[in-house]
């Protein structure tokens, strides 16, 4: 048994009728690591996370989660895992402290009162503890959710798009907390759509159409894509993008604010394609592809390439 791996699963598969939501995904996450879990909507992120915490029974696959068998010991895994659902799933007609107290009881937390008190303190919820959860704003709801996930001292946190609908300041504070907790030895698997959040992760796993595409550090992921990217500045970028899109070698042309990123995997072909557009009007420069370029590139890969 490899104690260093918090998650070590392979061949995880889930089917819903005809649809295969998760198709033989292998994933290893080291203890104390923050693993970003990326992929477009409907690619199977939530289903995969739900299988890890015993909410869904995998149709196929094996492995361990915190050293315990993901199929057989799902009840034992539940005790050591904190799961934050995509949608706020605490009791809106209970107050913050009542919610936390309930969760603590469900997990048989020792010294429950102290645990609830500490968790309120730690996430700055003490003043609002009597407020009903349903009346909280997005940022506070998310704090409550995090506090609740942590109350039983889990070793692994599975967070499913935890910062959706949360303002930038609250998001930053949230991520600081995550890094702090990771420093204490907690392992994270965080599903997200935000590139800035992805860049804060130690490692990334990208899934598309139910399959795992890439797995590695940010740099590794970018390098694996072997993408060449040109940045264009100047007027009428929309028109440039439209004209350039159909040309051989150009795989994507995406606007980034006032800039246009044109990317392709074949550097030579790409350079040929953009040659007619390199006029006085526009400033062209080759740049390092960003994570976002890479992800859009992967998401737009044709189906056959993914399933091959």
């Amino acid at each position: 048994m490899n104690t260093e791996l918090a998650i070590d699963v392979c061949g995880m598969t889930k089917r819903f009728g005809q649809l295969t939501a998760v198709d033989h995904i292998d994933l290893q996450v080291r203890a104390g690591e923050i693993c970003g879990f990326l992929g477009p909507n409907g690619s199977g992120k939530t289903t995969f996370i739900r299988m890890l915490c015993g909410l869904l029974r995998p149709d196929d696959g094996s492995g361990t989660c915190l050293g315990k068998d993901v199929i057989r010991d799902s009840e034992a895994i539940k005790r050591e895992v904190g799961y934050m659902t995509q949608r706020f799933s605490f009791w809106e007609d209970l107050s913050i402290v009542e919610n936390l107290d309930f969760i603590a009881r469900m997990y048989d937390v020792k010294n429950r009162r102290d645990a609830v008190h500490q968790s309120l303190e730690r996430l700055g919820l003490t003043e609002r503890r009597k407020q009903l959860a349903g009346q909280l704003s997005g940022g506070w709801k998310q704090r409550l959710a995090l506090a609740a996930c942590l109350i039983h001292n889990p070793k692994l946190l599975l967070l499913d798009e935890p910062t959706a609908g949360v303002d930038p300041k609250a998001r930053r504070e949230f991520w600081e907390e995550i890094h702090h907790l990771a420093g204490e030895g907690l392992t994270f698997l965080i599903a997200t759509h935000y590139m800035d959040e992805a860049e804060r992760c130690h490692r990334l796993a990208f899934i598309l159409r139910s399959k795992l595409l890439v797995h590695g550090t940010v740099d590794e992921v970018i390098e694996q894509a072997r993408l060449t990217t040109w940045e264009v500045a100047g007027p009428n970028l929309l028109q440039v993008a439209e004209q350039i899109r159909g040309r051989a070698g150009v795989e994507q042309a995406t606007a980034f604010g006032n800039l246009l990123h044109v990317s392709g995997t074949n550097a030579a072909e790409l350079e040929q394609a953009i040659a007619p557009f390199r006029t006085e009007q526009h400033k062209w420069s080759q740049v390092e592809p960003g994570l976002e370029d890479v992800f859009i590139h992967m998401m737009e890969r044709p189906k056959q390439e993914v399933s091959a």
Binding site: C53, L55, R79, T85, F90, E92, M106
Partner: peptide, 13 residues
């Protein structure tokens, strides 16, 4: 309906 079932099921019950 409120989504709290998912939370309840993720706990050891």
């Amino acid at each position: 309906e409120r989504g709290t079932m998912e939370n309840l099921l993720s706990m050891p019950t």
